[in-house]
Simulated assay, not measured.
Amino acid sequence: MSELGEVLKKARLEKKMSLEEIQDVTKIRKRYLEALESGDYNVLPGKFYIRAFIKNYAEAVGLDSEEVLKYYHDEVPAVETVVNEPIPARKPKRMRSASSEKFGKIGFTVLMWCFIGLIAFAIWYYFANKEADPVENGNGNGKQITDNSVAPKVTPTPTPVITPTPTPTVGPVSITFVEKNGRDNVFLVSPMKDTYSLKLTASGGASWIEVYEGGKNGTRLHYATMNDGEVLNFDVTKDVYISMRYAGYIEATLDGVVIEDEDIEKARILLKLDTADVEDTTTAE
């Protein structure tokens, strides 16, 4: 048992509280509380949860959480900062697709006019040969055209096959932390797409959830408690604002990519769509 774990356990026993009572107060699972008391931090779901769990445990047993973290900071594992790098080479690909589409339209126009020209030439050739044949009526010097005369054959011109321009594909979503604006954590979502799939999954407990499309003051999509095991799915086309109470019980993903947030007590997340790709592509065209 670690020294920090002994302090927490001693304070709990002095309060005459069981681990089940601490679990009800802090909403932290009992096995995680036992891990804090024994100093076995590998049991916890992630390093960025450890400080929050210790803080909530200390406050539940009447200790000054800041002093506890400050005094025993050597025992608390450091939090690793993970930065999701955006996928490169997205803009040049869109520019090449636009050029291909432009040349495809020009090629289609040229083929269409060539086809019309061939048809006009065939019609002219037919009537020109017909008028050039001599017609004599009974003088014996010319050939009289009978009903058995065969008109010149016109070889049909094959219809040109137009190959459609392939639609440019959009790569996987990248979610990058940008800044902390007040109590809101702002993330940048790229590349730009018509629709994104937002999924919220509750596991281990209940949490109050608010979801708005179009930013913090946008259209409300959800405003209720999510129970353990419940799953919510939304198709969004604009910026998304998510507010979660007891966020440690919620896993939030956008197009399958997990949205990481260090605040497990109450998370406020703003997902801003990266419109730079669209603006740069429009300028290039």
Rank of each mutant, 00 (worst) to 15 (best):
M17W: 03
K47V: 10
L273M: 11
E230S: 03
P134M: 10
D133I: 12
L4M: 06
Y223D: 03
K130I: 15
P77C: 09
A284I: 04
L254T: 01
G204S: 05
P134V: 13
A120L: 13
R51H: 07
L13K: 15
Y49I: 04
G62F: 05
N141V: 15
K47S: 15
I264Q: 05
T146L: 15
V170A: 07
K10V: 06
E230V: 04
S100E: 14
D64T: 07
N137E: 13
Q144S: 14
P191L: 04
E179N: 12
G5S: 04
F48E: 14
V43P: 00
A89C: 05
W113V: 08
Q144K: 15
V257A: 13
L270S: 12
M226A: 09
D64V: 07
T169I: 14
D228F: 01
D235K: 14
K272I: 11
S65K: 10
Q144L: 11
S243Y: 10
A206N: 11
P77L: 09
L63N: 04
V186L: 06
K30D: 07
T146K: 15
G140F: 14
V150M: 12
P152H: 08
D194E: 13
P86R: 08
F103C: 05
A60F: 00
A247F: 02
Y126A: 09
E210S: 10
L254M: 12
V236A: 06
I28W: 03
A128P: 00
G204N: 05
Y223M: 05
W124Q: 00
T275Q: 10
I116K: 01
N42Q: 12
E262K: 14
I145T: 13
Y241C: 04
I162L: 09
D184R: 11
S100K: 14
I106T: 11
F187I: 02
G218D: 04
L188D: 05
I264W: 07
Y32G: 02
G104D: 07
K216E: 13
K9W: 01
L254I: 03
S207R: 01
V154H: 02
M1P: 06
P160S: 02
V110P: 03
D64R: 09
